[in-house]
């Protein structure tokens, strides 16, 4: 039983009408793991989260939380889940404390000490008795996390939690999630369309595109995997368009310029000499060639290109 995953997806799919929004998802998340769920807007992340917490019906397959089917034994399954779905929507006319009290009343065994404790953890103690309509977005996120953790869940689900957080807030969230996973053995499921944030937050990540899980790997492998590196060529800006045309004609993929005269091209290292020779023969003056370790963003673009 010790190795039972906290979450198990068994070919879970969602259809609306004839359209399949999420295709058969099958994967596990273990206790103590921070799992990133990546995908561009409209990929089906929120739909997946809604299936996990029983807000929408699962069209086919099932999702198990600590062995309990969310469809067949909702109460036993949801008992172990804390979540924010999309925005941290709160009762604006209640105070922070009343909001927490409200959710505390809905599960057995949450004392008022626990409410104080969790408010302290997320750093809301000072404003706890203010109406939440006076809260900033960051404070709403904190209160959202507090309500999700109130009953000490085994699974924490956060849907795009970094939306509206400043870099300091994101850094703090990252540390907090890691601590939750390491110290309290909570499984954390975080969705995001911002891959850079996932890179440092997650242990493992799944990549969702058009409702299909196209990759699922350890984040380190995701970042390092593949043999193409992103090569950054610095040229005379006046010649950039000419160079781009040349490269495209030779079937290389050229990314948009970040700065004038800076082309970014995914290349295998052994392709670099041939490319530089081709450009020099065309009379293009190269000021620099740099090889970059691709970020998750770059990888993501790469995968989606592959799929097309």
């Amino acid at each position: 039983m010790n190795h039972m995953p906290v979450v198990r997806f068994e070919r879970a799919a969602k259809k609306v009408g004839k359209r399949t929004i999420v295709h058969d998802l099958s994967f596990d998340i273990a206790a103590g793991e921070v799992f990133g769920f990546l995908g561009p807007n409209g990929a089906g992340k929120t739909t997946t989260v809604r299936m996990m917490v029983g807000l929408i019906k699962i069209s086919r397959g099932d999702i198990f939380i600590k062995g309990h089917s969310i469809t067949k034994s909702f109460k036993q399954a949801i008992r172990h889940v804390g979540a924010i779905v999309e925005n941290p929507d709160l009762y604006n006319y209640l105070t922070g404390y009343q909001n927490l009290k409200h959710y505390a009343r809905m599960v057995p065994g949450v004392t008022s000490d626990r409410i104080e404790e969790i408010a302290e953890t997320v750093g809301l103690t000072g404003r706890l008795h203010d109406k939440t309509k006076t809260y900033s977005l960051g404070m709403r996120q904190r209160l959202g996390i507090a309500q999700a953790l109130l009953h000490r869940p085994s699974l924490l689900i956060l849907d795009e939690p970094t939306n509206g957080l400043d870099p300091a807030g994101i850094h703090e969230l990252r540390g907090y999630l890691k601590r939750l996973a390491r110290e309290e053995d909570v499984a954390v499921f975080v969705s995001s369309h911002l891959l850079s944030e996932m890179e440092s937050m997650c242990d493992r990540a799944g990549v969702l595109q058009n409702g299909k899980l196209i990759r699922i790997e350890k984040v380190n492998d995701l970042v390092r995997g593949g043999d193409k590196k992103l090569v950054c060529l610095t040229l005379d800006p006046a010649q950039a368009q000419q160079a781009r045309n040349l490269m495209t004609a030779s079937n290389y993929e050229v990314r948009s310029e970040e700065r004038p005269g800076e082309l970014r091209i995914p290349l295998r290292p052994d392709e670099i000499p041939a490319v530089s020779q081709m450009l020099m023969q065309a009379g293009i003056r190269i000021y620099g060639i740099q090889m970059r370790e691709p970020s998750l963003e770059d990888k993501f673009l790469e995968w989606t290109e592959e799929k097309k």
Partner: peptide
């Protein structure tokens, strides 16, 4: 309307 229904329904109650 307020979006709070989501958080209300994901508790161990029918």
């Amino acid at each position: 309307t307020a979006g709070t229904m989501k958080l209300l329904l994901i508790r161990p109650h029918s």
